[in-house]
Write a protein that binds this DNA or RNA. Structure first.
Length: 580
RNA sequence: GCCACCUUAGCUCAGUCGGUAGAGCACUCCCAUGGUAAGGGAGAGGUCGUCGGUUCAAAUCCGACAGGUGGCUCCA
């Protein structure tokens, strides 16, 4: 048995112990299920009265009190009828019994101490092998029976469990680190964005600092867009409902669309840009000479998410996409996909990713069930082949996910692991054989006949808001130079140096550096401390010595060097140019 | 949307038993004119999320609403 499995068994055993404690302390409790999780266990139960986090230490103590009597997990197979009798007043267990009967599996009971639960097994031999210092109850939350919002809301008690106190403590430490670098906390501390109840939840407002950060990302992406031959377009944020009826999104997105009633027509706030972009393509006749056509736009879309699902910047109602659509011939797919992969690779390498195993690439293909997908076999086969070849030529390893493709075409997704080990899906490249058809897009081919182009949807960051949230947490607010909302702070030693400080600031700004100056009547030490607290990449300190020689003291963390103002500007410009 | 919890100054938080509100940081002013991780002093800042109820009296107790936080099929 792998040690992981053993740990999972111990966690599941602790779930039983938690169930026993709940039943013991709160008579009338109806237990539902209690599985192991990645970092511990939980038990879902319908309790006679609400629980609060203050109850957790008491429940935990109860678990420790019961534990010594649990010397083994005694298994007994019983009949369906016996099981129904035993759990007659527990609707959840009865539902499970029905399900198991349908599956034709054995029904088993496990008993420890004086607690018996319906369970399929997977326990430790006894609780004596479970580290009692390695677990703790973490939180209490609501959870629907079987995760379905139409069912009862149960109370879920979460526990953390490891094989030693040290493992538990280091896990708790990781959770604390994640909490410390939470983008909502850092966003407030660094003054990047805020929410106003009057504007509405899920609608982030970006401050000057936060906007500088967004612009830094947009500008850097813009450099790569130019390099890869994109043209910029602009579309309004509304469209008639008819647009989305024709695209199929009206049926599919349903209540996630924001409707706007005009005087004569019904409008929808755009939840995506593809339909608009097809209409830009359709605005003039195209021949094969014109293809590929590459449109790019940084633009905001609006989706009416469920309120409870909103979360800081990672789940919002208004999100900005670094959207791009390529219209090309089937023959051009390969080059376009290769170029898009390079784009994504260049971008994420500049941010320090693509090192070791921090990037996972998934190729989603059609798989066996062809009914679900639109488009002809030849196109699909060609496209899937081309995507795989493009990745191989780049020397990127990937795993194929059959049956995971969108109904309109295969896709490549890029997942990245952040600095504390969490994985995020960020970039995506999707082929689309359906939308060009729906909007009757054409180009005139070499044979003079009208053909339908292939559409490639691609996003590098996904949504700027979500990407920002992830980067804030990944860098813990300490951004690389080219992203830092404020890159340099000019610090005059004393008021005599103010005039030179102004001059230095103006020079830096004229070189495109995001800089400010701290002219407060405060000791240099205090102003340096503030610069540290704001995670400024560089400090430029000037006094009478620097003013005389037209130099600056350039400081980065603990390091200092005196260089000429001109050299300083040149160095910053070089550091800003991340893609060369 | 649903369940639990939370909401006191711009921020982080204290506030005992129901008796009309406090700290640190930030802010403003004065002093200190400085060479590297927070110099000294003074001042200003609050309908205690909103609305209603109980009470002689509510930040405190009760209710509704708003906003926020943790969760919402790892399966008996």
């Amino acid at each position: 048995m792998r040690s992981d499995d053993r740990l999972q068994r111990r966690r599941h055993s602790l779930a039983h112990l938690l169930g026993a404690a709940l039943v013991d302390m709160y008579p009338g409790t109806k237990l539902a299920i209690g599985p192991a999780t990645d970092d511990g266990f939980y038990y879902d139960a319908l309790l006679p009265s609400p629980l609060s986090v203050d109850d957790l230490p008491v429940i935990e103590q109860k678990m420790r009190d019961i534990a010594p009597a649990w010397t083994l997990f005694d298994r007994r197979v019983i009949s369906v009828n016996e099981a129904r009798d035993l759990f007659a007043n527990n609707p959840y267990k009865l539902e499970l019994i029905d399900q198991i009967e349908k599956e034709g599996s054995d029904l088993s009971l496990y008993t420890s101490g004086d607690f018996t639960d319906l369970c399929g097994g997977g326990h430790a031999d006894s609780l004596q092998e479970v580290c009692m210092d390695g677990f703790t109850l973490r939180s209490v939350a609501g959870a629907y029976w079987r995760g379905d919002e139409k069912n009862d809301m149960l109370t879920r008690v979460y526990g953390l469990a490891f094989d030693s106190r040290e493992d538990l403590e280091s896990h708790v430490q990781m959770l604390e680190e994640a909490k410390k670098r939470d983008h909502r906390t850092l966003g407030k501390k660094l003054g990047l964005f805020s929410f106003s109840p009057l504007v509405g939840p899920g609608l982030p407002l970006f401050t000057p600092r936060g906007t500088a950060l967004r612009h830094a990302i947009e500008q850097a992406l813009s450099v790569l867009l130019d390099r890869h031959g994109y043209e910029r377009i602009w579309i309004p944020h509304l469209a008639k409902q008819d647009l989305y009826e024709q695209s199929g999104h009206w049926d599919k997105f349903g209540d996630e669309l924001f409707s706007v009633q005009g005087r004569h027509d019904s409008f929808v706030l755009k939840p995506m840009n593809c339909p608009h972009h097809t209409q830009v393509y359709a605005s003039s006749p195209k021949s094969y000479h014109d293809l590929p056509v590459r449109y790019a736009e940084q633009t905001t879309v609006y989706r009416d998410e469920q309120k409870g699902e909103l979360l800081g910047l990672t789940r919002v109602l208004s999100l900005t996409q670094d959207d791009g659509h390529i219209f090309c011939t089937p023959d051009q797919i390969e080059d376009e996909v290769a170029s898009t992969i390079s784009f994504i690779e260049t971008w994420y390498r500049a941010l320090g990713f693509f090192k070791g195993d921090d990037c996972t690439i998934l190729l989603s293909t059609r798989g066996g069930d062809r009914e679900k997908y639109l488009g002809d076999d030849a196109t699909w086969q060609h496209a899937e082949q081309v995507l795989a070849d493009a990745l191989r030529k780049k020397g990127l390893s990937f795993s194929e996910e059959p049956g995971e493709a969108a109904f309109y075409g295969p896709k490549i997704d890029f997942h990245f692991k952040d600095s504390i080990g969490r994985t995020w899906q960020l970039a995506t490249i999707q082929l689309d054989f359906v939308m060009p058809e729906r909007f009757s897009l054409t180009y005139v081919d070499t044979d003079g006949k009208k053909k339908t182009p292939v559409m490639i949807h691609r996003a590098v960051t996904g949504s700027i808001e979500r990407f920002l949230g992830i980067m804030i947490e990944h860098f813990a607010g300490v951004f690389p130079f080219f992203l830092a909302p404020l890159q340099v702070r000019v610090l005059p030693i004393n008021p005599d140096a103010h005039a030179y400080a102004h001059e230095v600031l103006a020079t830096l700004r004229s070189h495109g550096i995001r800089a400010d100056a701290d002219l407060a009547h405060e000791p240099i030490g205090k102003r340096v401390a503030k610069a540290y607290a704001e995670h400024l990449p560089y400090r430029v300190v000037v006094g009478s010595k620097e003013a005389e020689r037209r130099s600056v003291t350039l400081e980065h963390g603990e390091s200092k060097e005196v260089i000429s103002l001109a050299d300083c500007c040149e160095r910053f410009a070089r550091e800003n140019d991340v893609f060369s």
